[in-house]
Design a binder for these strands. Structure first.
Lengths: 230, 230
DNA sequence: ATTTGATGCATGATGCATCAAAAAATCTTG
DNA sequence: CAAGATTTTTTGATGCATCATGCATCAAAT
């Protein structure tokens, strides 16, 4: 299960810190507008400054973290424009991934995906937020894995990370339910219907749109500058 | 003209080194299979190890450079599979950029783009490879700029960097000519025809496909391991 | 009371020393 | 002469000291 994590102690510290920050963003342990400092995380996690600096630099470059000023790096507050842009990109790219995945999926791939979906459904039933959000993301990314498109997967991973804090905040108050559309994607893949698979995943992506737009407004008004309270 | 470059001395060294390596890749000064070492570049360019390390780390993470083993970072040799994957992604994303650009382009945008194309045509006439390749790339990226989609542009920039060494090798022996399809893209934008703009840019992207596939085969046979020469 | 300027602290950038791992070169042995 | 073992060299990762800069705080002047 943790084939990639077993070697965690072997790979370099910077990457470990990267994953740690990524996880914190995805699970809502780091919230929009939170400030990150090299020395702060260094002391908190007992790691020297260099690996922390590496990780923050990379995340900043990927736009997962935002550099507001030379010494002020924060978890970005998603704007509506940014969300809508990411949405368009995802519709195209995840649609592409679903198509190709439908063309290439092996019986084993389909079994694995169904197993994953069952796990997600159970997590949703039990209101296990962390597992449900992680599972949801894993499903979306696994399409590009089945499609055998590593470059595409890397791009999508980045986009998911950017949306991470927003989604985490949302699930925080509005836990996810079962996801029929995910099952429809797999059914389409099993029928070798790229078009249906694409449409299903696109519909799934769009289904979250209204709620996330709401969440964006909530966050931005909630985090409004105290000065505006006049 | 160099609004973003005036502050070059102000921004951090790591980013300067990043740009320098990027330029070297795009202009063919660094070739596929070339090995990069921190200390090597450090001495060559008179910069300390830290900024070089930063730049190489970021480029490696973006898959612009390839980490073959823990201490062996190289300019990747593009595979056919990788090229075809990037091609699919670009068809979708640059198509999207062209559509949105066509919807939003202002008269000023159109003037700027035409000016750019004229410059490119002249560069092609004069067989100025460096200018022609840079200009070609600038045109493609400017579509996402006009579309006002910064996230999309960042993704496309990364993909272009990945293809950089391949394109540089190709232009090296097969200089580019005028590009009628680029003009067609702008004409479509001026007519506010997103569909035509998308089709034109997609056609342009595909027009390079056969030649680049050839180039891939050439490179891979040319760089074949000496051991195979039995 | 408000604004402005000076001072000190926090912080990122950079350079460098050290260490362990990898690679290269050299030597040994069959 | 070849293949393996061993030594030497190269190299990336990490930690840390230093430096320049930005920010906040506080006091003084208006």
């Amino acid at each position: 299960m943790s084939s990639a994590l077993d070697d965690l102690s072997r790979i370099n510290l910077g990457d470990q810190v990267y994953e740690r920050i990524a996880k914190a963003l995805l699970t809502g342990q780091m919230r929009p507008n939170d400030k990150l400092t090299i020395r702060g995380l260094s002391e908190r996690w007992g790691v020297s400054t260099t690996p922390i600096r590496d990780a923050i630099k990379q995340l900043t470059q990927e736009k997962v973290l935002e550099q507001r000023s030379p010494k002020d790096v924060r978890v970005p507050v998603m704007t509506q424009a940014m969300y809508l842009e990411i949405l368009q990109i995802r519709l195209h790219l995840e649609g592409l991934a679903a198509e190709r995945a439908a063309e290439r999926a092996t019986p084993q791939d389909l079994r694995d995906l169904r197993k994953l979906l069952n796990r997600n459904d159970k997590a949703a039933d039990r209101q296990n937020l962390a597992l449900a959000t992680a599972g949801n993301q894993e499903f979306h990314l696994s399409l590009s894995a089945v499609a055998d498109m590593p470059t595409l997967q890397k791009i999508l991973k980045g986009l998911w990370l950017q949306m991470g804090p927003l989604v985490a905040c949302y699930y925080d108050m509005q836990p996810p339910g079962l996801n029929a559309l995910h099952h429809e994607v797999i059914d389409a893949m099993q029928d070798k219907s790229p078009d249906r698979a694409r449409l299903a995943i696109q519909k799934d992506i769009l289904s979250a749109k209204p709620a996330l737009l709401d969440q964006i407004t909530t966050l931005r008004t909630g985090l409004r500058d105290p000065a505006e309270a006049l």
